[in-house]
């Protein structure tokens, strides 16, 4: 059991101070910028909440939000069944499982700007393996000008990149279930489906919630891969929340960019807070 001792704050002070420097100070600064019209940092004018007013009535923001929410939903619907399925197929402690875990971890160590390069090379019709295969079966795959194809490519790339994390986390949750549970299920004559719904899933819930939160947030705010694949196109069809923000920053629209950042940060905070409540409820249950 944990004992109550406020002096334990000292343990957290080094980590907290570092986060103060690289996290809290920038957030306060960004909030400050969001209230100004900034030409240069010395030359700025107080505009109050004007940027926020402008943003909250902007149709583009809601369109981008819609696209991001759709993207996140698809990511979760694809990657969770797949990741959990992979985890269920792995036997604890076998050599194949170790090999599979290593394989699943490989896409995680590829730098994010390399991932789109690797994939656009792969689907290149002139020399990419997949691109030539598409040509061979007569499929006119064109991720630059066909919005559906851009979506398919980004979803595939994101799944390639992240399904390993979901699978590793799901496997880690599942391997903490004592064998006695499974033996009891066999004695009771429980079906494979019943074992999954009544033993495995409830025991994996906490770790899957964490995986869900990480995947939802990272996919809502996808930037590097989506930008590199088609810069938000064709015709804005893959302009997600972060791509709009990146555009503002690249155009030196500091004020609007800051207001956007504040809105996104509050959004993150809201999700994190709700997630903690869900976790606490999952623990209490």
């Amino acid at each position: 059991m944990r004992t109550h001792n406020n002096a334990a704050w000292w343990f957290a002070v080094p980590a907290f101070s570092l986060l103060l420097l690289v996290g809290l100070i920038p957030i306060v600064a960004v909030f400050n910028f969001s209230l100004f019209d900034i030409f240069t940092l010395e030359d700025r004018y107080w505009v109050g909440l004007d940027w926020y007013r402008e943003l909250t009535v902007s149709v583009d923001l809601y369109k981008a939000l819609g696209r991001s929410v759709l993207f996140s939903t698809l990511v979760v619907l694809i990657q969770f069944p797949l990741g959990i399925g992979i985890a269920l197929m792995m036997r604890r402690g076998s050599i194949q499982t170790t090999a599979m875990l290593m394989l699943l971890a490989i896409p995680l160590v590829v730098p994010w700007n390399m991932i789109p390069i690797v994939w656009t090379t792969l689907v290149n019709p002139d020399f990419g393996v997949l691109g030539q295969f598409f040509g061979w079966i007569g499929w006119d795959f064109d991720y630059k000008f066909n919005a559906l194809h851009t979506w398919m490519l980004i979803l595939t790339v994101d799944t390639w990149h992240w399904v390993g994390l979901v699978a590793i986390l799901a496997y880690s949750g599942r391997s903490s279930i004592p064998n006695a549970y499974f033996h009891a299920a066999v004695i009771d004559g429980a079906s494979r489906r019943a074992v999954f719904w009544h033993i495995e899933l409830p025991k994996m819930r906490a770790v899957l919630l964490m995986a869900l939160l990480l995947r939802v947030m990272d996919s809502l705010m996808i930037y590097t891969e989506a930008f590199a694949i088609n810069a938000g196109g064709p015709n804005g069809a893959t302009t997600f929340l972060s791509l709009d923000l990146g555009e503002d920053i690249n155009a030196f629209n500091y004020g609007p960019a800051a207001a956007r950042s504040v809105i996104y940060f509050l959004f993150v905070l809201l999700l994190a807070w709700n997630f903690r409540r869900m976790m606490q409820r999952a623990e209490a249950a």
């Binding site: 944990r2 004992t3 001792n5 972060s242 950042s261």
Partner: peptide, 24 residues
């Protein structure tokens, strides 16, 4: 240990992990 504000600290950690780099 438990200490005053430990839960808020955890929330802050979570929020920082989730904040997309573009925002900052």
């Amino acid at each position: 240990f438990t200490f005053v504000g430990d839960k808020h600290l955890m929330l802050l950690l979570l929020a920082f992990r989730l904040t997309p780099p573009v925002v900052l």
